[in-house]
């Protein structure tokens, strides 16, 4: 399968940014590309790009058209929208026919989570794929649950940000390793967009805008995840050796994480 991650820049206004994203998609997405991932807040700095129904519609129509035209799955990145009376950050994946096959909505400025869109998984002609948005990726349980449920690939419209950049770059690969899953992480602020397999980083960007492309055999993750009792490959172990009957504390509301030692 062939994947692309777009580390697109923010231009002075959202319209210009969308045009630039379109130009880059038309320039770089070639026939045979299977997945394209755009970053969180793809249309601009959320502090200066409030929800705009018309702009959201235009962006979605454009990405839908491109998904059909280029016959590619598109993780649209995210932008702000109004949803049930509040502002949410929305990411979607469009299939090769331009249909929405996964959606994540997060409250933009805290508050109760938006129910019904946690850790979505969807079937593609390249296997089961997960979608995670923004900071959900840094909370380990999100990608873990998707991997346990069969995701071979997790698409992340994300933000590396300016803090802990090196730790986060390591964590993108680490999450791929620990969950035996491929990760396609697109970022604008802070750069660091990454395509990672469990055993290696396939491509990683610095801070400059650009496009990462990578390709691996369709059965790569299936083979990685199969238990190998010769132990030449051991990265499957973390999925197979689990003892879920012991993990109830992970679902318990009590939080002792900040208690004093």
């Amino acid at each position: 399968m062939r994947l692309q991650v777009h580390q697109s820049p923010w231009l002075p206004d959202a319209g210009a940014t969308l045009e630039a994203v379109e130009r880059e998609l038309r320039r770089s997405v070639t026939r045979g590309t299977d997945f394209v991932v755009l970053p969180e807040h793809v249309l601009g700095d959320p502090a200066r790009t409030p929800p705009d129904a018309g702009r959201s519609r235009r962006a979605l129509e454009l990405f839908t058209h491109l998904a059909r035209e280029l016959e590619v799955y598109v993780a649209t990145g995210s932008w702000l929208e109004h949803h049930e009376g509040r502002v949410v950050n929305v990411a979607r994946v469009l299939d090769r026919a331009g249909r929405v096959c996964a959606t994540v909505r997060q409250p933009h400025e805290g508050g109760a989570p938006v129910t019904g869109t946690d850790f979505p998984l969807f079937d593609t002609d390249k296997g089961k794929v997960g979608l995670l948005l923004g900071h959900d990726f840094w909370v380990m349980e999100s990608s873990r649950i998707q991997s346990l449920r069969g995701a071979h690939l997790v698409l992340v419209p994300g933000t590396l940000g300016t803090r802990n950049r090196e730790s986060k770059k390591a964590a993108i690969w680490g999450i791929a390793t620990l969950n035996c899953v491929a990760v396609a992480f697109a970022s604008t602020v802070g750069g660091g967009s990454t395509l990672a397999l469990p055993q290696r980083i396939v491509a990683q960007a610095d801070e400059a805008p650009g496009v990462l492309t990578a390709e691996w055999a369709d059965d790569t993750m299936t083979l990685q995840r199969e238990a190998d009792l010769s132990f030449k490959n051991t990265l499957w172990f973390g999925l197979w050796a689990r003892r879920p009957e012991l993990y109830a504390p992970l679902t318990a509301p009590a939080d002792r994480s900040t208690e004093a030692a």
């Binding site: 946690d118 840094w138 909370v139 346990l148 940000g161 803090r163 999925l239 197979w240 679902t251 939080d255």
Partner: peptide, 25 residues
């Protein structure tokens, strides 16, 4: 600093999936 996010943004009520087995097993 945002190191706290990995633990501080958890939503345990949404993590029932960790109690499930791996589907590929």
């Amino acid at each position: 600093d945002d190191t706290w996010q990995g633990l501080g943004l958890r939503r345990p009520e949404a993590y029932g999936g960790v109690l499930e087995g791996f589907v590929g097993q």
